[in-house]
Design a protein around this nucleic acid. Sequence first.
DNA 1: TTGAAAGCGCTAACAC
DNA 2: GTGTTAGCGCTTTCAA
Lengths: 335, 335
Amino acid sequence: MTRMDIQKIAQMAQVSRSTVSRVVNNQPDVHPEVRQRVLQIIRETGYQPNSAARSLRNKQSDILGLVICNTVGGLFTDPYFPQLTQGIAQSCNHYNKTLSLFLEGDPETIYPRLTRRGQLDGILLQVGNTDDTLVKKLMKTDIPFIVLGRPMQSGVSYIDVDNVSGGYLATLHLIRLKRQRIGAIHCSLLTTTGLDRKEGYLKALHERNIPIREELTAEGDYSEPSGYRAMLQILPHHPDAVFVGNDMMARGAIRAIQEAGLSVPNDIAVVGFDDLPPAVSASPLLTTIRQPISRLGACAVDILLDMIEHGPQPPQRVMMDVELVVRESSGERIA
Amino acid sequence: MTRMDIQKIAQMAQVSRSTVSRVVNNQPDVHPEVRQRVLQIIRETGYQPNSAARSLRNKQSDILGLVICNTVGGLFTDPYFPQLTQGIAQSCNHYNKTLSLFLEGDPETIYPRLTRRGQLDGILLQVGNTDDTLVKKLMKTDIPFIVLGRPMQSGVSYIDVDNVSGGYLATLHLIRLKRQRIGAIHCSLLTTTGLDRKEGYLKALHERNIPIREELTAEGDYSEPSGYRAMLQILPHHPDAVFVGNDMMARGAIRAIQEAGLSVPNDIAVVGFDDLPPAVSASPLLTTIRQPISRLGACAVDILLDMIEHGPQPPQRVMMDVELVVRESSGERIA
DNA sequence: TTGAAAGCGCTAACAC
DNA sequence: GTGTTAGCGCTTTCAA
């Protein structure tokens, strides 16, 4: 079957191209019978408008870009990214937008690919660390974009989960359980995620007048083995609880604790962050902070589409609530 | 800065649009001085050609589509997909192609999005199960596509890892270690992956005249908990080894074995499949089949681009080698 | 070596 | 309610 275009459809239906266009775009002012005839032919021929021509004419591609770069822990070890991507993809699908994916380490090479005129209507930007090169460059363009997670750079729209509150809730939970020596394994402090969760942890300790012990604190890179290593550092200082910056590291920490002959939660209570199925489901079931990853992605798309539709707006800041999910690893209240 | 187009650049450089176009596309027959002048202005203005106009004119979008749908185990639990996606994305980047992502369950809704004229130059199709609806539909179009993994449908180009050989190698390893009662936890048999790995397992047993015991076999869905449950089914029948269809399930199986008070590898040897970092790195270190996931993605892009460039070709079938990686979970040779 | 001009397929004034 | 027409920004004959 030869390639269809609007002209051919018009001829077959004995109407003008405009009329076909009107039918295709569901515009009024087409005689019902004519509309049916055109629709019928479109169906028969499997005609689909050429999207390049449409983009050119409409100055809109209906393509959104998702940039994931500079992630500290890597794309592989953390199920966070698949889940986020899935949330965004579903939302794009709902709005009949195409999603283009840009995975890369180097902002310099990714930038020109993002700014090809007419290629992308808007951009979702996941910046893994505090290097805001891409954010700064994008601010100079007229492409609407929204940052996923809190950027260091101010003056841009972003959407984030309330990481401070998450760290706070997790730590407070451990305090209420009467734990005395509450340690923390932080995500990289080069990320706002790491910074914010730590801030929540410190805030809770401070509020309850619990002294902060540096030696009960270590840093990981989001991966399971890094959680294991971090726990090994803390263990000699006899923590009775630990708040871990994400679930994967929490698993590693639990492994270290158990290998040291100690019990979770009896000897050491553990709270994670993320609530991602694969990390949570092992034994003991992980007490953790649930963040609405898919919803965050979906919400980001909503905001971005709004920005695209209504032009420049003051920077938006959206915060998604987190919640504590109590399972086994934090245990019962102790004497 | 007002939006640049080729016309404005031409005016500023005092040449015609054609000349600018020649410079942009690196064509010969432009006076060196003129070329420099134009290049200079392009640099100063940050001009980038409008990609919609280009696509329209060239009948090529430089966009590749990646479809991941109908996955049995879900996108979240299996690090396979991020790794594959990353391999593909890097390769696209190398060839300066844009990658569009289509994640969805329903072939009916995804199909029209894939076939928008002029939107996609070609498609990489990851079909999770034996439902080949999308493959069949795509065969009727003129869009080049390649299937990732072996499809049920014949007559299409695909690239796959040698799953049969993987199952065979894993099982043979266990046989050589003198294990007698070798069980298997299969991936869903609705996938060719599941089918092929099982075939390799059976082939090895058969070759060495080891009786096949149905009761030592169970099925999972690629997730950790499903491996755990499957192992629970097999355990009462006293296996002394088990080949597990992927690493995540292998982790679950190990957990079940250990909770039953048995040791890996002393009581039961375990071999997985995938060699994915998060699953492999826990204790005991997992013996597994390594498949070159990133390379498969990269290779798929190569083939697809070749198909796009050189038009219709007879279906290609490419097989990637796998290898056995021996670590701790399969243990030493026993008496 | 360069420029003029046609046209890729579509949409939206505008005129009828 | 329908058709005519003028571009959207680019590449590429073709002629100079």
